[in-house]
Design a binder for these strands. Structure first.
Length: 496
RNA sequence: GGGCUGGUAGCUCAAUGGUAGAGCAGUUGCCUUUUAAGCAAUUGGUUCCGGGUUCGAAUCCCGGCCGGCCCA
């Protein structure tokens, strides 16, 4: 024994908690070896309470301690589980002097405990568990962020998402809603006889879209692979193979910038339906989104309206959705009925008149599309099917029968964002090859020869569609950034 | 990649060239129906990192690291 006084660790919450753990272990109890057999989640437990029948129904619940209001001989605390918080009431005269002291001194905010007790209603009307026994099943050695302001540091929210989920109820709700959205989409498609499939992430040709891929290397085969930038060409092979309605909800990787709207890996739903076309896809997406809003988002007023975070407007998914041709939108925005017969020089000056910077190296369709994406798309807040895009924008769709310069497609635009492009899928192998080879500018895709071979075996006519799940979640949850709907968004490696 | 902007106690934030503070959390007491519980006392700092200017730097300057917003 030494005479030196014990070190003052009262300011170091980590050290204080470690000391409490060490003391428990010295007393023969190790929380990390303990467990609890729960009977209910928090909301289920509260639902069991019968008005006027205090201290009758017994439950065992478990969760993380998130509020801690200790008084002399009785205390209220809250634990939180997957379903939310539930209040617990600890009394010295119920637990006994010794256990009450363990509760008061041994437990900290953030600890995970299990309790058994009976339901009652407090005088302020909150259904609460009066605790008969409790067990610590995990000691939190680090303190929780502050209870009132929550966790505000954006970097820590993303790097330590688990803290954000514990502390910030809106984050918890938003990210849970994402899970429900994906689940709803699966069930919606399955009830319409769509089959979910999984196609490779590693490909020797990254096709189906125009984007820079991530590259990796397979050691045993001694070849380079690319992470997929779309699932389109694989899913169309499934149509060739006789899976007439298929979909994949898959992670897509694009080696491009990181921004409010872009994460290097993101989630895309792609759907293909044989014997349908782009008009069939309109019905499909409209049904999918209206049922999503009705069954998952559930607007309080029973409408199909949601608040658009960026503009403050209501987006109304009820009624007919606007349908408008790409060329008509361009003619309207430029005020030039003859826009598409203008020379490149005239298009450049037309774009500049609208305040756009134009790179003279661009192809004409790229100049036009700059007008679309900068001046038109952001104004399309209500659900809008923009149809009949210039054929240069996508080589994988069928040419419009009465206009050989456009394709039979739509881009569903909501809240100023492209949410879902859909096509009548090109199934003529010769036209497909020609269209691939004619690609130019930033739209140029890698040519997947094996896909062309598959088309030569015969692909049924089909409608296909892609839905950016992250963007859909931004829209439906009122988020401001893609990082708010992705659990662990990409950041530069850091020290946290 | 460029412009703007931020990094201070575990968390949320003050301090604009002159002794680094507050609230919550922590610690010690009191308190048997609380709701950001209350009361009293109290601990806690590599001011992101490295240089520079200055009698003196959280603050001004340069470089770096990690974020945010806008643009490409």
């Amino acid at each position: 024994m030494s005479d030196t006084p014990p070190l003052d660790i009262s300011h170091d919450q980590h050290a204080v908690r470690r000391a409490k753990l060490a003391e428990m272990r010295a007393g023969g109890f190790d929380p990390f070896r303990a467990n609890v057999a729960t009977t209910h989640f928090s909301a289920e437990a509260k639902a069991l309470y019968v008005d006027g029948q205090d201290n009758v129904v017994s439950v065992t619940v478990a969760g993380r301690l998130v509020t801690f209001r200790v008084q002399g001989g009785s205390s209220f605390v809250k634990i939180q589980d997957q379903q939310g918080p539930i209040q617990l009431y600890f009394r010295k005269d119920v637990l006994g002097e010794e256990r009450y002291l363990v509760f008061k001194k041994g437990l900290d905010l953030g600890d995970i405990i299990g309790v058994t007790g009976v339901l009652f209603k407090t005088k302020t009307g909150e259904i609460t568990v009066r605790v008969d026994s409790f067990v610590l099943v995990s000691k939190a050695l680090r303190p929780l962020p502050e209870k009132w302001h929550g966790l505000a540091d954006a970097e820590q929210i993303y790097r330590q998402r688990y803290l954000d989920l514990i502390i910030n109820a809106e984050s918890r709700h938003r990210l849970m809603t994402r899970s429900k959205i994906v689940s709803h989409i699966r069930r919606f498609l399955e009830t319409q006889s769509f089959i979910e499939v999984e196609t490779p992430v590693l490909e020797s040709t990254a096709g189906g879209a125009a984007a820079r891929p991530f590259k990796t290397h397979h050691n045993a085969l001694g070849v380079d692979f690319y992470l997929r930038i779309a699932t389109e060409l694989r899913l169309k092979r499934m149509l060739v193979g006789g899976f007439d309605r298929v979909f994949e909800i898959g992670r897509i990787f694009r080696n491009e910038g990181v921004s409010r709207r872009h994460n290097p890996e993101f989630t895309m739903l792609e759907v293909y339906q044989a014997y349908s076309d782009y008009r069939g896809m309109m019905t499909l997406i409209k049904d999918m989104l209206t049922t999503l809003i009705r069954d998952v988002i559930k607007p309080a007023d029973g409408s199909l309206k949601i608040k658009h975070a960026a503009s403050g407007q209501d987006i109304d998914f009820g009624g007919e959705w606007r349908e408008v041709k790409y060329k008509d939108l361009i003619r309207e925005a430029t005020g030039d009925a003859e826009w598409f017969s203008r020379s490149k020089a005239e298009k450049i000056s037309g774009a500049e008149k609208l305040g756009l910077g134009v790179n003279p190296a661009w192809e004409e369709f790229e100049i036009t599309n700059e007008i679309f994406s900068k001046k038109i798309e952001p104004t399309l807040i209500q659900p809008t099917f923009v149809t009949h895009l210039p054929k240069e924008l996508c080589p994988l769709a069928k040419i419009t029968p009465d206009d050989p310069t456009t394709i039979d497609v739509f881009e569903l635009t909501i809240g100023g964002m492209e949410v879902a492009p859909a096509y009548s899928e090109q199934n003529d192998p010769d036209v497909q090859r020609t269209m691939f080879e004619a690609q130019a500018g930033e739209e140029k895709q890698n040519i997947d020869q094996d896909f062309l071979l598959a088309l030569e075996h015969g692909m049924p006519p089909a409608g296909g569609m892609g839905v950016g799940i992250d963007r859909l979640c931004i829209l439906l949850t009122g988020a401001e950034s893609i990082r708010d709907v992705i659990l662990f968004p990409q950041l530069r490696p850091g020290s946290a």
